[in-house]
Structures are given as C-alpha cells and as structure tokens.
C-alpha cells in the first residue's frame, strides 16, 4: 500500500517532471523534445544561479543556526532531571512550526515595516530615520532568514527534547563521577544520544531552506534586486507566468536533485558515525 501511494503521488509526478524537463513546452501547444537544453539554459542563467545561491544562504538561517542553538539549549537541560520534565517548552516551541508560513510572513512583514512595525519603532525612538529592512539588499535576506531560524529552532528543539528523554540520566551521573565537565558530558553523552534526531533535523531543515517559497513571496517577492529570489519562486515564474513549463520542470528537477543528494550525504555521514 505505501508503495502504491508513493508511486501515485510522488514517483509518477516526479517522473513526469523529469520528462517535461526535456521538452520545450508552453503548457498548451505540442511540446518539442530538446534534450538537455533546458539544463544548459539553467546553467547559463545568472538569475537561476543567483536564486540557487540565495537558497544556500537560507540554509544557514534555516538549518545551521537553529540546530546549533537548539543543541546548545539541549545541552543545558540534558543533565538536569528537573528541566527535562518541563512540558510547556514543547507547546511554546512548536507553535511557530505549526503556523502556516504565509501567516508568519504577514506577521513578520508587519514587524519589519517602516510604517508601524516594532523594529522600526525602536530605530526611530533612538532618533534615527526608519530603515527599509525588507527593501534593502543587505538586510532583506537575513530578515527573512531569521523567521526561518525562529521556526526551525522550535522544530529542532522539540526533536532534541524528545531525544533527551531517552538518554539514561545514569550516564550523566557516571560521567560526573569520572570527572567529565559539562562540555565533555555534552560531547560524549548528549551528542551521541541525539545522533538520530540531529540527522532528521538536518534533513528537514535543509530541505525546507532549499524549497523556501511562501515567506519570500509574501515578504519581498524575491526583491529587492533579486536579493531574496529563490529557486521555488523561479520555478513559479518560469512555469506559470512565462509558460516555459519545460524550463520550470528542469529547475524543479535540479532542486529535487540537490535535496536528494544532501539527504543522502547526511544519512551516509550518520551511518559511518555509528
């Protein structure tokens, strides 16, 4: 049954995308087979390369910062039986993750707004001019990225808290008796105990960073000057606005390929660790 579902909803559409990527097609008239030309066009397209580069920048905000932060906090609570059992964390941490990204985008657009947003309220309270956070090429990407950090940090934290519950507290006691300090206890007890959770967090957050669309669409439309343009938005524009379905499919295939390879690398790394 799972195989049937997988075939129907994932494999067939994906295969169709791969086939489409070899055609020049406007979605209406007869497609013409053009081999790998779409991929060659992508390789030459500075707009596509820029979008892909921005996706990689987003991985820092969606993946590395939140996981590092979550690991740090996990380390703090891991060897304290008292902190471990606090359940309210889970609720608070999970709220951003379950909210639709479009809603978060609207909220954060307001937070950053030069008109009435709290961030600019602080800036103008210090006597400075309001700053166009989402309209400046240097700040727009980090501003969106921080929303990703906020969401993904909660997600990673939930995973890690769950993982910590499974680590026997006796291991920490034993480590203490052996004279291991906090850093060593983290390195030799917490980190190995969370290996599976870290793997999952890495794959999910990296994939999210590479697929990001909604926040960008709601907050900046890829601007200013393409500084927040991403591959998913590029696919949307080429396939739907410009009706270059084949080129959009090729970009989608590249994106899936990158996510697939990244996931494989992470899984391979985990297997070799254990």
């Amino acid at each position: 049954m799972p195989l049937v579902i997988y075939t129907a909803f994932a494999f067939i559409p994906f295969a169709a995308t791969l086939v489409l990527s070899l055609y020049d097609w406007d979605g209406l008239t007869s497609p013409s087979f053009i081999g790998l030309s779409n991929f060659a066009d992508l390789a030459r397209d500075a707009v596509f390369r820029n979008a892909l580069g921005n996706n990689f920048s987003f991985t820092i905000f969606y993946s590395f910062i939140p996981i590092t932060l979550a690991l740090f906090l996990a380390a703090l609570i891991a060897d304290s039986a008292r902190l471990r059992s606090v359940r309210i964390y889970r609720l608070l941490l999970f709220v951003p993750y379950v909210m639709p990204m479009v809603v978060l985008g609207v909220i954060w657009r307001w937070i950053y707004s030069p008109l009435s947003g709290p961030v600019n309220a602080v800036i103008t309270a210090t006597g400075r001019d309001p700053f166009p956070i989402l309209g400046d090429t240097t700040t727009a990407l980090p501003a969106i990225g921080l929303v990703g950090t906020w969401v993904m940090y909660g997600f990673a934290m939930i995973l890690f808290i769950a993982g910590i519950q499974k680590i026997d507290t006796a291991l920490y006691d034993a480590a203490r008796v052996d004279g291991a300090n906090r850093l060593k206890r983290f390195r030799f007890v917490t980190l190995p105990g969370l290996r599976n959770e870290i793997t999952v967090a890495l794959i999910v957050t990296l994939a999210t960073a590479l697929r990001v669309f909604d926040l960008v669409f709601v907050m900046t439309r890829g601007g200013p000057a393409r500084s927040t343009d991403v591959v998913a938005f590029y696919i949307f524009r080429t396939a739907f606005n410009n009706r270059e379905v084949g080129l959009g499919a090729a970009a989608a295939a590249v994106l899936v390929g990158i996510i697939f390879v990244a996931s494989l690398v992470i899984l391979r790394f985990r297997t070799s660790e254990s």
Partner: peptide, 8 residues
Amino acid sequence: ALAATACT
C-alpha cells in the same frame, strides 16, 4: 516530490 511537481 509533491512540492516540486505539484506545479506540473
């Protein structure tokens, strides 16, 4: 795969 292919 769904996300990447929903469009097509």
